[in-house]
Design a protein around this nucleic acid. Sequence first.
RNA 1: GCACCCGUAGCUCAAUUGGAUAGAGCGCUUCCCUCCGAAGGAAGAGGUUGUGAGUUCGACCCUCGCCGGGUGCACCA
Length: 575
Amino acid sequence: MSSLLSTLTSRLAVTLGIAGIDESLAVVTPSADPRFGDFQTNAAMVAAKALKKNPREVASSILEHLKVGDLCEVPSVAGAGFINFKVRESALSDALNVIRNDMHLGVVSVEKPKTIIIDFSSPNVAKPMHVGHIRSTILGDSLARIARHLGHHVITDNHIGDWGTQFGKVIYGWKHLLNRESLEQAPIAELVRLYREVNALEENDSALKETVRHELVKLQQGDAENLEIWKQAVALSWREFERLYGLLDITFDERLGESFYNDALGPLVERLLAEKIAQLSEGAVCIFFPELHAMEEKPCLIRKSDGGFLYATTDLATLEYREQRWKPDAVWYVTGAPQQLHFEQVFAAGRKMGIKTELRHIAFGSILGEDRKMMKTRSGENVELGGLLNEAIERALAVVAEKNPDLPKTDQEEIARLIGLGAVKYADLMQHRLTDYVFSWEKMLSFQGNTAPYLQNAYVRIRSIFRKAESEGMGDAIATASSSITISDPAERALALQILKFGEVLHAVLEDQRPNLLCLYLYELADSFHRFYEACPILKSEGDVRSSRLALAKVTSEVLKTGLSLLGIGVPERM
RNA sequence: GCACCCGUAGCUCAAUUGGAUAGAGCGCUUCCCUCCGAAGGAAGAGGUUGUGAGUUCGACCCUCGCCGGGUGCACCA
């Protein structure tokens, strides 16, 4: 079923073809200002440039052949050569009635589904997840949800840091300083304690330093005891990670950490050397990019002079594994902007290895504290994610308890969970991902403005209308609300047009991996609804008008719920 | 030094292939609850989009030069 916009676009394309103009110029967009109609196309102006003709004349000649009378009022040429469309109310009603009965709410799946691997979150074992992981985790999850919703085949992979030099200290600490009880209660905290204590002891004790290093070497060589300790540390860390992912409602298809690729690193380096893709330089093995001007002096190191491997080595082995196992069309890495150079190197190296897959670094900015510096605790440490989420829920609970004290405690807690977690996620996703943003409890938990609670509340309010309708015996009105939507009032019209945009916005989000566009859309949808709600009485109207308005409210609530779910945010029925 | 990212209202941020008079929220000034949830709505003040050129019918967006902030740059991840 084609949407209003896509119908207009295809009609325009046909007309352009007749006029001898490139059909790819047939782009129709929602108008920026209602005074210019509902939709517009700039095709005439773009075409005029290529043809070296007067834009307005081109626009006029396009209109001579364009047949859209069934959908719009007579299109007009305006300004420098814009063509404006004002949709007929009947066409608007028709389009909305189609969407209302469409379980995908007007969202059309992509024509050619891709296999997309999304690599995100990636915490380090034996360390707590902290604010630094928030954006990767939330952004990656949302992109995965949206890509799936549009019909892509998505594989989410949590490439955790489960192998590294920190294990020398952890293992030594485990053997000599372990507190079993603490380990049971708060495993990661105990592992961190071990790491720190050994680190401090090492400072002035070179003999100990050597012992600790030896523990790491034993682990790398496969020593049974050390391997067992390592396995337990990984398992215990996972236990805590999963608890957080469960709270956030985030799941992964794969959890292939760095250690999974250990055995592949040596052979990979040897092969790249043999194939002359890599070479020895100052004792290390590097891949050089003399053909890439910006990276002439930025080689990718894949083996240290002491024989150890690096981050890039694991990434290349991982990439190769993914290529062989899934043959993906794209691999997306959701990590911070500072890692840009690293990924440019890995991608360039990958291309030298013959990998054609679309590789994208989905970079994002930092979360700042109120002081506009990287967010830290007062003592200068990373803010732990678990504590942050708990605080969000507690703060939300305080608000819910105050605004709605009559609700049962368990309901309040459930609502607070949805609001608190939604607030944290939304505050992150609503920002353009590349900009740094200032973390503010007050702003994200406010019920006013562009926040998750505001959107959740818009949904709740609609649900409340339906509860009221039922309690007042308007069951028949609800039943007939599925019969037909009729648009007449300007506020209804604005809401209807906004609802119809849902089908387009998700594609735009995925184009640049920017969920903030979906946030903006949902905020504008809630805004349109509130204006409609003010201007158009629903339950106080009667007959067809009432059932039409109920239906309009219903679709709005469904789009809100679906849209929020694609951001990983749930909605309560009341709050 | 080189590379990348960012400079938009007092503050926090948007702006749909380069489109029409650059939009929201917070804060500030006024209004609107005998009326479906005021957790809302209506109206107002607030801008040389860091800066100087260039390309274009048209530039927050593209090109070049400056200024300011952030990040990264051979054996950490």
